[in-house]
Design a binder for these strands. Structure first.
Lengths: 346, 346
DNA sequence: CTGTTAGCGCCTTCAT
DNA sequence: ATGAAGGCGCTAACAG
């Protein structure tokens, strides 16, 4: 009852008075087919709007030409921007993408991993989630290792100790440094860092680079100016609120991403502070929002296209059993907008 | 060389000293298997981390448990919000989604349609693109009809004359009316409508409802206050600019979506107009941005979850050859924020 | 309850 | 250049 219709190469073969093999040949172009027959077949393919069953093909050829993408939340512009690039890079190389939103849920994440493997994807791109946990559980670790035994997986901006996966990483550390250089160059001496989640590697790394760099520059690292309430706009509001309640506030605030920056700017302004007049703010990820959210947010760009290109190249290389760099670093760059300015001593 | 590894039910069967059928039985639970054997099989499945090949299953069962989703641009929050809901509804029912970004390109759209059919998806959800063209080309029409002959397709907020597809539509017309009622209730007598693309049904419909409603209310419909430069933030800026250059400006402006509203607000403010003080603005789609973009944009919500639920239900119903409503209307509602206020005669 | 067998739709040797 | 045949991994009769 669920059965589909089903024009197959056999139907075509019969009606064209040739063998199925011949139909297959004109379909794949794997061998020449003489003219009277060839045209007949082509005509029938057109007549029935015949499309070969890719599952049958894949079954035989042992490759599905499908790639899986696992990520936490497509709503976040960082991910939607990356996904678009990944998809278009994959498409160019003849691959179709299966997109999986784990909704920040590790069980769903694992279920998708298993599902993708069952569906015979040729490779998987993994973003966020467990690969950003600074201390993943044993279960997450073995889940990943088991999967890796079935199929090549490339991590984007993540890593797991004890998991031997290939990684493409954007140079967030140098992004942080450049942002700091700029702020310091602008005369800021008191700088805070907000947003993110402690225990998530991208947050931890940014915080640690932040600390180191300030120390190098002989600037004060005030612990209460480092505060992490998540990656959302609301999180940014909360973190900004935290700063607002302090006796002494930094004159510049780095935010873990653009969402947090948006939240922070909203909250600062709500409390009558001018951005960038009273406090300079930086974002991260350079999503389209940073351009449009007033006053325009200075942010770090991940080089999305290059990132996606390298990721897909590496994955497809792995699929073809070619040796690939274990870790590739994609340079980032700062996009200057209007959320930061010179600090003038009041 | 591209070949994968390959533990199959045959390997397991052999090692467990049972027949492949028995392995299949414990896998699917389609029949009981006695205890000594059952445990041995289970143990081996676990040992090898065996995952059945879904392509082979699908080939035999003639159903892939995959759904295709075709949309123009995942970057747009309207689409990313819907996709998340669709995906989660599908997942609940055991379906995996193949997401396809057509990038507003009709050829890619068609290529994806063909690809999805070749890949044997059980059904397709179609959003935007050709199904919103007021006058689609013959080619787009036949392309869709050909596809429809292969697989059930559900349109979300679209329709094509001459294409007999099922549609789930949100009640945008009543959304427009409610917005207008509110503005008129606030004392606005001069109202504009900006954004969108003429020839795209969602734009055309909104404009037409807009005209009708104003006439009913005996308010002036000034043609130069209706202006459409697209769906983007930049488009909103341009349309707002157009209004700013006019001798006489409306006191309230409806925008085709939230992006356009954001652009318009930016531009109005840039020119010193207060929103909502000098001009009230409404958005559409009630994306997360409308909540966070200052001053908070009054917008129409599509009831995303209900929409997605109904869409997936209808599609799966169709797949199971159950009769389904040809068109379902999902009610919309207005979310009030701070971008509109009473009009006070200056 | 369990093994044998055939076949889902396609592709690719292997002969012809 | 073309046809026949086997097999990709799995499931569902059909016997036993």
């Amino acid at each position: 009852m669920l059965k589909k219709d089903g024009v197959t190469i056999y139907h075509i073969a019969k009606e064209a008075k040739v063998s199925p093999a011949t139909v297959s040949r004109v379909l794949t172009g794997s061998a020449n087919v003489r003219e009277p027959a060839k045209s007949r077949v082509l005509a029938l393919i057109n007549k029935y709007n015949f499309k070969p069953n890719v599952m049958a093909q894949s079954l035989y050829l042992k490759q599905s030409k499908m790639l899986g993408i696992i990520l936490p939340d497509i709503d976040h512009p960082f991910y939607s921007m990356i996904v678009k690039q990944l998809e278009s890079q994959a498409l160019e190389r003849g691959y179709t993408c299966l997109l999986c939103n784990s909704m920040q849920n590790f069980s769903i994440e694992q279920a998708y991993l298993d599902n993708l493997i069952s569906r015979q994807v040729d490779g998987i791109v993994f973003l966020g989630g467990r690969i950003n946990q600074t201390h993943p559980t044993e279960e997450l670790l073995t889940g990943m290792n088991d999967s890796l035994r079935h199929v090549p997986i490339v991590f984007v901006n993540g890593k797991m100790d004890g998991v031997n996966a290939h990684t493409i990483r954007t140079d967030e550390a140098s992004g942080v440094r450049r942002l700091l250089d700029m702020l310091i160059h602008h005369g800021h001496k008191t700088i805070g860092l907000i947003g993110g989640v402690v225990g998530v590697s991208s947050t931890d790394e940014k915080i640690s680079v932040f600390r180191e760099t300030l120390k190098e520059k002989r600037l004060m690292v005030k612990e209460e100016w480092i505060h992490s309430s998540g990656y959302s706009i609301e999180g940014g509001e909360q973190d900004a609120m935290h700063l607002l309640h302090l006796d002494e506030r930094p004159t510049a605030v780095m935010c873990i991403n653009d969402f947090v920056a948006i939240g922070a700017i909203k909250m600062f302004r709500k409390f009558g502070l001018k951005v960038p007049g009273d406090v300079s703010v930086t974002g991260f990820d350079d999503t389209y929002l940073s351009e449009h959210f007033p006053p325009g947010i200075t942010s770090v760009n991940h080089n999305y296209q290059k990132l996606a290109k390298k990721t897909i190249e590496t994955l497809i290389g792995l699929i073809s059993h070619e040796e690939q760099e274990k870790e590739t670093i994609i340079p980032t760059y700062v996009t200057i907008r209007n959320s930061c300015e010179e600090w003038k001593q009041p």
